Amino acid sequence: MKKMMKRTISILLAVMIMVTAIPVMAAETYYDIHTSETNLLIPGTYEDYNIGSVGKAKATVKSSNTKIATVKVKKGVIWVHAKKPGKVTITTKIRKKTYKTKLTILKYENPISSVKIGKTTIKGNRFNKATTIYLSYSKYQNKKQKIKLNLKKGWKLRTISYSQRNWNKDKALKNGGSVKISGGKGFYLWVCAENTKLKRTQYINIEFK
């Protein structure tokens, strides 16, 4: 009987050791932070820029000069609020890692000549004073639309992407390609253009509300 008890206790101890030896795997968090950006500022207004995603990770953010730009994390996205032209560094800390994003904020230039969404042509002058324009979601919802951008001379298209309101990341889209506008109000198109002479980038947004 004693031998059986000892054997049982030995087996239980062995199982406990094996269980405690198994590492607890923490849920992996997706984050992607840009390390260098050149942004253009709209004259007379302020503008928000997305410089990365921290997902569900706990992050602290800080601006090196709040007179030029402030920063905050909202719904897992890092937003920089530009105030005036200048240079600023945004520091993001996640767990034990530190990321530094160097921003150069310049005066705004409109790179858009025209945008065609399906059969609707949007004139480029709508972007003269705003990097974001708003269109009716109900007009386009659940319809596959061809997106075609024409840029002004001296500008080159770098990327087009799109996202639904609840996504934490964008999906790439080719110029002239088609996308289904769905997922509810807040669907948006995101455009990055580069001034080929000055090597400056400008971001344009079209949001469906």
Rank of each mutant, 00 (worst) to 15 (best):
K87P: 04
K83R: 13
I105V: 11
K148V: 04
T104N: 11
T159E: 10
I105H: 02
W155F: 15
N125T: 13
N142I: 00
K148A: 07
P85N: 01
Y134G: 01
K96G: 06
N125R: 15
K139Y: 10
K146C: 01
L149E: 02
K116C: 00
V115S: 06
K143Y: 08
S163C: 01
K83D: 02
K96M: 09
T98H: 10
I133F: 09
L135Q: 11
N150L: 09
K96H: 10
Y134F: 10
I117Q: 06
A130R: 14
R126S: 10
I117F: 03
T159Y: 12
N128Y: 04
S114W: 12
I147C: 01
N150P: 01
G124R: 15
K100C: 03
I160W: 06
N150I: 03
I105G: 08
Y99A: 00
K129N: 14
R126Q: 10
I94P: 14
V80D: 05
W155R: 07
R158A: 10
K139D: 06
I133N: 07
Y99L: 07
Y140S: 15
L157K: 07
A130S: 15
K84E: 13
L103I: 02
K100H: 13
I112C: 03
Q145K: 15
G86S: 11
N150E: 14
T91Q: 12
T131R: 15
K119N: 15
T120D: 10
K87D: 15
R95H: 06
E109M: 04
R126G: 04
T120P: 00
T121K: 15
G86K: 09
Q141Y: 04
L103Q: 08
V115Q: 04
S136E: 06
I90P: 09
S114R: 13
R95M: 08
K143C: 06
T92L: 01
T132C: 03
K97Y: 15
S163L: 11
H81S: 09
F127W: 13
I105A: 08
K97F: 00
S161P: 05
G154T: 07
I147Y: 06
S161L: 09
T91M: 08
K97H: 09
K119T: 10
T159I: 00
K153A: 12
T121H: 00
K148D: 03
Y162C: 07
